[in-house]
């Protein structure tokens, strides 16, 4: 007994010393791969592939059935606007019950593909809508229902003293973006690539310098806002509509100029296994005057 225990004791002490050494050495020794911003040769200029979403605002009157339960899967950036739209619809149609599931569009596609029950899917870019169509979970033609602009958001006291987008390349800035698979993450990277084209305003090596400043990649746009609101990050890139009344006091907005701003387009479509009548009525409402007015109230850009 004694022998085995001293052996174990020695082992434990040895392992612990080793760990302490690793713990000290660890933070510096990791290479950072896979986080570089990759720019495509031709900047897409924003609205993705317009051919994929031909329909805009072909709003028919929203007629809801007597009663029913509707489940809407919507991009995280739609959280407040859609919650308002849901409340308005339920107030006017007391026997209609609407449930929302808000997450990054790419997460919603995974959930839909894995059989999550939904009636409507509203994405923050065409790529994720096309992915859902490719997986066969969406029925019918997607329609573009709103647009959104990018903005840089910093904590209210602006600890890094950011004055404009060019400062994103500054040393020691803690920048938080969404994952490249999240629509806003993709749009942010496109905007950074567009900025880099203008070397007189943004300098050489802009993309590399901004890329080196990224300290975290979040799974949806709302988490980016929270990290900035908490002051953990010096700056983040989000949609204008994400700077809601709730967070407006805690953050400051730095405009992204039009020539490099990427306009996000949001497609909506009914889900194949869902209730087609309810889904159609909801989509018609969103495309109709009331839905459009609510979206505008929440900072979205109205359709042209």
């Amino acid at each position: 007994m004694q022998a085995s225990i001293t052996m174990m004791q020695r082992m434990i002490v040895g392992v612990m010393l080793m760990l302490a050494a690793i713990g000290v050495a660890a933070p510096g020794s990791f290479a950072t791969a896979q986080t570089a911003i990759e720019c495509v040769a031709s900047p897409s200029g924003g609205s993705g592939n317009p051919a994929a979403t031909p329909a805009t605002a072909s709003a028919s009157q929203a007629v809801f059935p007597e009663s029913g339960e509707l489940t809407v899967f919507a991009a995280a950036s739609l959280t407040d606007a859609f919650a308002q739209i849901g409340d308005d619809i339920m107030a006017a149609n007391p026997d209609i019950d609407i449930t929302f599931n808000f997450a990054g569009s790419q997460t919603l596609v995974t959930q839909l593909t894995q059989g999550a029950p939904a009636d409507v899917f509203a994405a923050a870019n065409d790529a994720q809508m096309q992915a859902a169509i490719g997986e066969g979970v969406v029925a019918g033609e997607p329609q573009t229902f709103t647009r959104n602009r990018l903005a840089i958001v910093v904590p209210a006291d602006n600890p890094a003293n950011l004055a404009g987008p060019a400062d994103l390349a500054r040393d020691d800035l803690r920048l938080v973006l969404a994952l490249p698979e999240v629509p806003v993450g993709l749009y942010s990277r496109e905007a950074i690539c567009d900025m880099a084209e203008d070397t007189s305003a943004y300098g050489e090596g802009f993309v590399e310098q901004v890329g080196a400043n990224i300290v975290s990649q979040e799974e949806d746009v709302r988490v980016v806002v929270t990290k900035v609101q908490l002051g953990e990050a010096d700056a983040g890139m989000v949609y204008v509509s994400d700077i809601t009344a709730d967070v407006a006091g805690d953050v400051e907005i730095i405009e992204v100029p039009d020539d490099v701003n990427v306009i996000a387009t949001y497609p909506i479509a009914p889900v194949g296994d869902g209730d087609a009548a309810l889904a159609g009525a909801f989509i018609a409402y969103v495309l109709g005057p009331e839905g459009q007015a609510t979206l505008e109230d929440y900072g979205f850009t109205v359709l042209p």
Binding site: F30, T32, A33, T35, V215, S216, Q217, E218, E219, K227
Partner: peptide, 8 residues
């Protein structure tokens, strides 16, 4: 801690 490959 956040979410960054190799660091967190």
């Amino acid at each position: 801690a956040g979410n960054f490959p190799g660091i967190t």
